[in-house]
Amino acid sequence: AEKTGIVNVSSSLNVREGASTSSKVIGSLSGNTKVTIVGEEGAFYKIEYKGSHSYVAKEYIKDIKDE
């Protein structure tokens, strides 16, 4: 089941290729951006990003809701 969340950062949140802080950064999301969460892996959520799937750190996503 998909969930949505809100990016909870003051500046921007790195979007990564994989579920690791050493993964390549492929983009960023600004605070209060709504994201669609399709899964989770460790400390990361797998999200829909620009037509494919990428990862963001869970600690920076708030207001998780089931869609």
Results as ranks from 00 to 15, higher is better:
55 Y>K: 00
50 K>F: 11
46 K>R: 09
38 V>I: 13
60 Y>V: 04
33 T>E: 10
11 S>Q: 11
19 A>D: 02
50 K>A: 10
11 S>A: 10
52 S>Y: 10
62 K>A: 11
23 S>N: 04
18 G>I: 07
23 S>F: 05
21 T>I: 14
54 S>H: 10
37 I>H: 00
67 E>V: 14
2 E>T: 15
3 K>Y: 09
60 Y>W: 09
4 T>I: 12
41 E>V: 11
39 G>N: 04
27 G>W: 02
15 V>P: 01
6 I>C: 11
42 G>K: 05
47 I>N: 01
55 Y>W: 12
27 G>H: 02
50 K>W: 07
46 K>A: 07
1 A>V: 14
52 S>W: 07
43 A>N: 13
32 N>K: 08
15 V>A: 03
59 E>N: 07
51 G>E: 06
45 Y>Q: 01
21 T>L: 14
38 V>Q: 03
63 D>P: 12
10 S>Y: 07
36 T>C: 11
48 E>D: 09
20 S>E: 06
36 T>R: 14
66 D>F: 15
5 G>P: 02
28 S>C: 14
5 G>E: 02
9 V>I: 11
63 D>C: 14
33 T>F: 06
32 N>P: 05
44 F>D: 03
24 K>L: 08
21 T>D: 13
10 S>G: 12
51 G>A: 05
18 G>W: 10
29 L>G: 00
7 V>C: 05
53 H>K: 05
66 D>A: 11
63 D>I: 15
8 N>R: 13
57 A>Y: 10
48 E>M: 14
12 S>Q: 12
1 A>H: 14
49 Y>I: 03
12 S>D: 08
14 N>P: 15
25 V>S: 05
27 G>T: 02
41 E>P: 00
52 S>I: 12
40 E>K: 04
29 L>V: 08
14 N>S: 14
18 G>F: 14
6 I>K: 06
2 E>I: 15
11 S>W: 07
30 S>K: 14
56 V>W: 00
9 V>G: 11
24 K>N: 08
62 K>C: 11
53 H>L: 11
53 H>E: 07
65 K>T: 14
52 S>L: 11
67 E>N: 13
48 E>L: 15
59 E>P: 04
8 N>Q: 11
45 Y>G: 02
13 L>N: 03
12 S>W: 11
59 E>K: 11
27 G>I: 03
24 K>Q: 08
12 S>G: 13
2 E>S: 15
43 A>M: 11
18 G>Q: 12
16 R>A: 03
52 S>A: 11
26 I>Y: 02
50 K>G: 10
33 T>K: 06
26 I>S: 04
28 S>M: 12
37 I>V: 05
2 E>W: 14
13 L>S: 04
16 R>C: 08
32 N>Y: 11
2 E>G: 15
3 K>P: 03
1 A>M: 14
10 S>M: 11
11 S>G: 15
10 S>N: 11
36 T>I: 14
7 V>I: 08
24 K>M: 08
67 E>I: 14
15 V>N: 01
21 T>P: 13
54 S>L: 07
62 K>E: 10
5 G>V: 05
44 F>N: 02
30 S>L: 14
30 S>C: 14
67 E>K: 13
38 V>C: 08
38 V>A: 04
60 Y>A: 09
4 T>F: 13
22 S>Y: 07
15 V>T: 04
35 V>Y: 02
10 S>E: 13
23 S>A: 13
44 F>E: 01
65 K>I: 13
9 V>F: 07
35 V>P: 01
60 Y>K: 06
1 A>Y: 15
37 I>A: 00
10 S>C: 15
40 E>V: 08
22 S>Q: 11
37 I>Y: 00
26 I>Q: 04
64 I>K: 06
5 G>I: 05
55 Y>M: 01
13 L>F: 03
42 G>R: 03
29 L>Y: 02
67 E>F: 11
6 I>R: 09
32 N>I: 05
49 Y>C: 04
46 K>Y: 06
54 S>M: 12
13 L>Y: 03
36 T>Q: 08
4 T>P: 05
46 K>S: 04
15 V>Q: 03
32 N>G: 15
33 T>M: 10
52 S>E: 10
49 Y>Q: 01
5 G>R: 04
62 K>G: 11
38 V>W: 06
10 S>F: 08
36 T>L: 11
53 H>R: 05
48 E>K: 13
22 S>L: 10
41 E>A: 07
51 G>W: 04
22 S>A: 11
22 S>R: 11
49 Y>D: 02
45 Y>E: 01
39 G>I: 02
35 V>F: 03
18 G>V: 07
50 K>I: 06
4 T>R: 09
63 D>V: 15
31 G>L: 10
62 K>F: 10
11 S>P: 10
9 V>E: 06
58 K>E: 01
6 I>T: 08
17 E>R: 06
2 E>N: 15
9 V>R: 08
43 A>T: 08
64 I>F: 09
48 E>I: 15
21 T>V: 12
51 G>S: 06
64 I>Q: 06
6 I>M: 08
26 I>C: 07
55 Y>I: 01
64 I>V: 13
13 L>I: 15
9 V>S: 12
29 L>E: 01
49 Y>H: 05
24 K>S: 07
58 K>R: 07
2 E>Q: 15
16 R>I: 05
50 K>H: 10
43 A>Y: 08
40 E>G: 03
36 T>S: 08
31 G>D: 11
33 T>I: 08
65 K>M: 11
4 T>S: 09
55 Y>A: 00
56 V>A: 04
38 V>Y: 06
48 E>G: 03
5 G>M: 06
17 E>A: 12
66 D>M: 14
64 I>A: 07
10 S>H: 11
50 K>Y: 09
46 K>D: 03
60 Y>T: 05
10 S>K: 13
22 S>I: 08
19 A>S: 08
26 I>A: 04
13 L>P: 08
17 E>L: 09
44 F>L: 01
58 K>I: 06
67 E>C: 14
30 S>P: 15
59 E>I: 12
60 Y>G: 12
20 S>F: 07
58 K>T: 03
2 E>R: 15
44 F>T: 01
36 T>M: 09
36 T>P: 02
42 G>S: 04
27 G>Y: 02
55 Y>D: 00
13 L>R: 03
57 A>P: 15
26 I>R: 04
18 G>Y: 13
10 S>V: 13
48 E>P: 03
27 G>S: 02
45 Y>A: 02
22 S>K: 11
24 K>I: 07
24 K>V: 06
14 N>A: 15
12 S>F: 12
12 S>R: 14
29 L>H: 01
6 I>P: 02
41 E>H: 08
27 G>R: 01
63 D>K: 10
67 E>L: 13
15 V>I: 07
25 V>T: 06
28 S>H: 14
29 L>S: 00
66 D>Q: 13
18 G>K: 13
12 S>H: 13
47 I>S: 00
31 G>A: 15
18 G>D: 08
16 R>V: 07
31 G>P: 15
6 I>N: 04
31 G>N: 15
9 V>M: 08
10 S>I: 13
13 L>M: 07
59 E>W: 06
9 V>A: 10
51 G>Y: 04
25 V>A: 05
43 A>E: 15
18 G>R: 12
65 K>V: 13
58 K>S: 05
